[in-house]
Design a protein around this nucleic acid. Sequence first.
DNA 1: GCATGATCATGC
DNA 2: GCATGATCATGC
Length: 481
Amino acid sequence: MFFTDFTRRISLLTLNDMKFNTKSSVEAHAQLLIGKTIRELHPQATGLSKKHKGGFGHLLEEVHFGYEINSRSEADFKELGVELKGAPLRQLKSKAYRAKERIVLSIIDYLALVHQTFHTSDFWRKSEHLLLVFYVHEKSRLPADRRIMFAGLWSYSEADEAIIMQDWTFIRDIVKAGLAHELSEGDTNYLGACTKGANKSSLREQPFSPELAMQRAFCLKTTYVNRIVEAFQRRSPDAEELFNEAEVRALQKRSFDEVVLDKFNPFQGKTVAEIAADLNVELNPKSKSAWAALTADMLGVKSIKTTPELEKANITVKTIRLKPNGVPKESISFPAFHFTELVEEDWEESELFEQLDSRRYLFVVYDLGDGSWSQMRLKKAVFWNMPQSDIQKARATWESTRSTLRTGKIVKRIDANGTRRDWFPNMSETDVIHVRPHGQNREDTRPLPVADQLTGLSDFTKQCFWLNATYIGEVLKSKGV
DNA sequence: GCATGATCATGC
DNA sequence: GCATGATCATGC
């Protein structure tokens, strides 16, 4: 059979350490995997039952491409400047594929980084041309049995490259300022500095400060990886681009943040009704999405959620309405957590740390005036992400939530009308984040790891972490809003 | 008036 | 139907 012969031929070739002369020949070889598993393509190969972490990447290199594992800083196909990466996908209920995680590139050498410029940097030399192999991650399957869905070379668009260069430069300048220990993934848009190490508290020296910094690696953020997946799926993104032609040109001289914030300038100080009139759009102040819709209109996009540049950068846009005392009317919620998962996590791998470290916010701030919507005036728009020092404070709330769950001392008392008072850390006891219910209603529950001591309940109303309104108020004050 | 608990509403 | 963003409502 042709197929069998062909498969055998590939296996022999890989054993002979194949040579690739062009980028497209490497790409074509990677694309042989599409729709298959490594075992199906190389049934006779050794090492197919390896279980260790990174197993897929290693198999890909050793079995399919036939070379020894290396962690040298040159690209995997040195002469061609191509770096090979295996990347896991997860499948949604809708059957669509999403990136399971960020793509981790090279470890950041803080000492060398500060002497480099982008286009000649170690990072760009190694990561300009990525050869990506996306496979479906299923826990129960060995790496050799995971199905490859997409494979190919990825080239950055001009606008993407401009944004990545800004991100890289930002990270380098933080290190130059002796602040490597203050880096977080949320500092930047597409290219992040994610924590990395056998132990995530692995520490490294930095050049301009005696303080040790967390070991970090350059990575493409999950949300950016999703855009790559989308491109590979050839689903034409019907979403509108955030930047028009003039703004793309402006990106050469001005930062991503500046170009975005400039879009709000014409509306500063105006009431929401005036803004709507300027933009010639309807305003339905009763709708909960009224202000988000107005923000989308000011940005010139249909919907914030589907704007590729915001999604790629993991930017969360929030409307903040300030009371006359400068404190936001509402706290800001995170997704509801799973009680049973939270008690099992380590801080460095926790959902919360991940979110605090990697999320960026675009706050669109209004003054509330006397409280009626017609008095709401746009004050300012600012970008923000949580500094490491505050992430450490948030950790205390996380720890306290965990111990509440572990002891099962959850319900404090039940009021006459049935309202449940609980022992989770609330806003008055915390500096940065607190815990509050977050479900459809009180009956919207999740299982507890330990039944509640007072009531015996084994399920409890969904809860989530909230950024304290008072904390956001201070953040905005310190940014001069 | 604010903090906390509860629920609404949108989008997938 | 559910996850999540947004906001309401009530007791202290």
